[in-house]
């Protein structure tokens, strides 16, 4: 006990014991998605490669240029962003819900780990998987087209915040979910349509006026455009507005997730 009490004083917001707890959650989360790499890392690789072959290479060659770049180059940022979003979300929703379902989340709830450390740990796990798959998608894109880099800071900032936002989204979904159907409904019926209609495969300029207006209510549209701006330097919307929206979403979703944890929703009777 002595080693614990001396090394682990709860004095500061991120004192040593909290950092060790955070590190433990992150290692556990990363180890989980690496252990089941056939389920977590291989499918997105195959999906992305197919998108490049079919949309980029076969169909894209007939479409011509978009935003001043070849169609293949134009869709690369969108496809990378799509894989990051999907995997960040999937990691947290499946991991947190599984732990909730088999009650192993109680290991954490009975321990002194503060709620914000629990949340940060799971979100970091989601970000790690999102970025890991994003990196693999970027490497695959090099096989089919050159990868531009207009502004590395904006690119890194957007990819990081987008993966945080969707990790938080996965967390919120997992808290409310009561069975495994509930964790597939949101990705299937909400996330996928929003991603596909968010401008992964096209510029909003190509849409009719009505559809263009509707697109502006889709938050993923701003994320994809901000990321595309970082990579190619082209965007359908103001980059300042997109970044502001991303920051606001991150803060709002973090606050909401934390509130759910403090309320014990779905976790404590």
């Amino acid at each position: 006990m002595s080693a614990l009490t001396t090394a682990a004083k709860p004095a500061s917001v991120f004192s040593s014991y909290k950092f060790i707890a955070y590190q433990t959650i992150v290692i556990k989360e990363v180890r989980r998605f690496l252990r089941i790499w056939v389920q977590t890392l291989v499918p997105p690789v195959i999906t992305i490669a197919l998108y490049f072959i079919i949309f980029g290479n076969l169909i894209g060659s007939r479409i011509g240029n978009m935003g001043g770049y070849s169609y293949m180059e134009f869709i690369v940022p969108g496809l990378i962003m799509m894989s990051v979003i999907n995997n960040a979300y999937a990691n947290v929703v499946s991991s947190f819900f599984s732990q909730k379902f088999q009650k192993s989340i109680e290991e954490l709830l009975v321990s002194p780990v503060p709620n914000y450390v629990i949340l940060l740990g799971f979100v970091t796990g989601g970000v790690a998987r999102g970025l890991c798959v994003g990196l693999i998608a970027s490497l695959i894109s090099l096989v089919f087209s050159g990868l531009h880099m207009y502004n590395i800071f904006i690119t890194a900032f957007v990819i990081l915040l987008a993966s945080i936002v969707f990790s938080l989204g996965g967390f919120i979904n997992a808290v409310f979910a009561r069975n495994f159907d509930d964790i597939s409904i949101v990705p299937t019926f909400i996330l996928t349509p929003l991603i596909y209609l968010g401008g992964v495969f096209y510029s909003v300029e190509a849409l009719p006026e009505f559809a263009r207006t509707i697109s502006h209510f889709n938050p993923i549209f701003y994320m994809i455009n901000a990321f595309r701006y970082g990579v190619l330097g082209v965007s359908d919307v103001s980059i300042t507005f997109s970044l502001s929206l991303l920051v606001t979403l991150t803060i709002a979703m973090f606050a909401f997730s934390l509130r759910l944890l403090y309320s014990g929703k779905g976790l404590r009777n």
Partner: peptide, 9 residues
């Protein structure tokens, strides 16, 4: 892992 949750190095 449980030890880690309690801050054990």
């Amino acid at each position: 892992t449980q030890g880690g949750y309690y801050g054990l190095p």
